[in-house]
Amino acid sequence: MTTGQLILNGIAAFLTLCIFSFLYKDNPFYKFAERLVAGVATGYWTILLYHTNFTDKVIEPIFINGQYHYIIPAVLGIMMWTRFSRKWSWISRYPIAFYIGIGSGVSITVYLYTYLFKQLQATISTPLTLDLAGLNVLIIVIAVLSALIYFFFSSAHKGIFNVASRFGIYVIMIGFGAGFGLTVMGRVALLVQRIIFLRDYIVALFGG
């Protein structure tokens, strides 16, 4: 490792330790690293969006390709800046309305297709076979129906409906538990990665 790399990795190691110090309690080192990353992250993403989206979708079309109709969304975008003024902030409702209108219209079809039809299709279109895979498919069908019944509040959960609803919440809890376990393992993997980084840095620093 060169001296330059050692210095840069030293900064990364220092910031890593600053964040880990929060495990003891909130302290100035943690606050420093937190505020530093807030500034750096905002700057980083702003510049990335400027050099990609802003250049590609505003500068190039209007000033190079002569697609002047892109001035309309640019003006709508500038109207968003009236949010800074109490007197004129109502003007920002027009671009927000446009944004929300487009977003809502697209959401209806996109969400119904991907979150409703595709999920139903995946649940009922898998063929039932007389083996372990087939049994899993059957369990999934029953479990999805039961979980849906748990969320169905237009009818009282009594009798067979109550049994299905109870089974539904059990399925949901097992599902959440499995998802939770997977998330914890993902975070632990990140933790291990950071500890390995610190170990490698110490080894490089002291020439182990």
């Binding site: 979150y115 999934i140 999805v144 979980a147 399925v171 949901i172 097992i174 599902g175 499995a178 998802g179």
Partner: peptide, 12 residues
């Protein structure tokens, strides 16, 4: 199995 089923019900 249970995780997929729970996710599907929630997605729906």
């Amino acid at each position: 199995v249970p995780n997929t089923a729970a996710k599907r019900a929630i997605f729906i």
